[in-house]
Lab assay of single mutants.
Amino acid sequence: TSSHKLRLYERDDYRGLMSELTDDCACVPELFRLPEIYSLHVLEGCWVLYEMPNYRGRQYLLRPGDYRRYHDWGGADAKVGSLRRVTDL
Rank of each mutant, 00 (worst) to 15 (best):
V86R: 05
N54P: 01
R69L: 07
G16A: 05
C46Y: 08
C25T: 05
F32I: 14
E36A: 11
P53K: 06
Y38T: 10
L43K: 04
Y67Q: 08
S3H: 07
R84L: 05
A26L: 09
E20V: 08
F32C: 11
E36V: 10
G74R: 05
I37T: 12
G81I: 02
H41W: 07
A76R: 12
K5C: 10
H4Y: 14
A76W: 06
Y14V: 03
L62M: 03
L31Y: 15
E20W: 01
L43A: 05
R84H: 00
C25A: 05
Y9L: 02
L62A: 04
S39Q: 00
R85N: 03
H4K: 01
Y55W: 06
Y67H: 07
L17D: 15
S2T: 08
G57V: 02
C27V: 09
E20S: 01
D66N: 10
L17G: 11
R15M: 10
H4V: 01
E20D: 05
D12C: 01
G57W: 00
Y67C: 04
L61R: 13
G65S: 05
S39I: 00
R84D: 00
D72G: 06
Y60W: 08
T22M: 14
Y50M: 01
Y55G: 01
R68D: 00
S2W: 09
Y50L: 03
D88G: 10
T87W: 11
Y50I: 15
V80M: 05
D66T: 14
K5H: 08
G16Y: 07
Y14W: 07
Y38A: 15
S82N: 04
Y67N: 01
H41R: 13
L34K: 15
S3L: 07
P53Y: 01
R7L: 11
S82L: 06
L8S: 02
Y50P: 07
D66E: 13
K79W: 03
R11E: 14
Y70F: 08
D88R: 06
N54Y: 14
A26Y: 09
S19Y: 10
A26E: 11
R15S: 12
C27E: 07
P64H: 04
V86A: 09
D24K: 07
S82C: 00
